[in-house]
Amino acid sequence: MPDKEKKQGTNISRRNFLKGVGTGTVAATVAPSVLIGAEKEADAQTGDAVASATIQLNINGKPYQVEVEARTTLLTVLRDGIDTSGTNIDLTGAKLICDRGECGGCTVMVDGKTVYACMMLAMDAEGKQITTVEGLADGDNLHPVQDAFVQHDALMCGFCTPGFVVSSAALLSENTKPTLEEIKVGLSGNTCRCGTYPFIFDAVKTASKKM
């Protein structure tokens, strides 16, 4: 048997398999139960580099203060973050599905525009209005999109649903009477594996009548 590695000229080696091991390590001091892993070096506002910071986030109209690393994503804060007062933020509606900004499971609104929370650094969300799926209903009164999703059965397993609901709400806030094609464009950043799309389209149309 010829040596496959040499024969095909690949460049896989044990060294490469371990690439990254030991690189760029920063001495980590871990504060349990918060998201940071390194000491704060400086303040973000001054133009100096910070490895971590305490940031203020406005989520669904409520202020939160949370310690984050520079690499902490907005999604991580929403789901796993702990306010400096010690309470879990626990907004688990937004999901991590693809982890690469391809599927829309983590869609939230930042200053009224949809973004992928898995691809946004938490520090970048400071000072902005963040709206998650949990912030759409007015108490017990569902947002028209939410109500229409239930009535049309625009969900099955429901794991993608929060992302679709947020994208649909954002779409209707910009375009109250979208055509089917515009609905498809507006929701093209969200993926459903159960295949609920036809009823999602119906639900958005129904909701648009109430906007």
């Binding site: 789901r79 796993d80 879990n88 626990d90 907004l91 688990t92 509606g93 937004a94 999901k95 991590l96 998650t132 799926v133 949990e134 759409l136 209903a137 569902l142 999109v145 939410q146 109500d147 999703f149 239930v150 059965d153 969900l155 429901g158 794991f159 649903t161 929060p162 609901v165």
Partner: peptide
Amino acid sequence: GKDKVTGKAKYTFDIN
């Protein structure tokens, strides 16, 4: 439906 459209539905991934 209501729990799923409001984000209240807790999946395994959401258990804290």
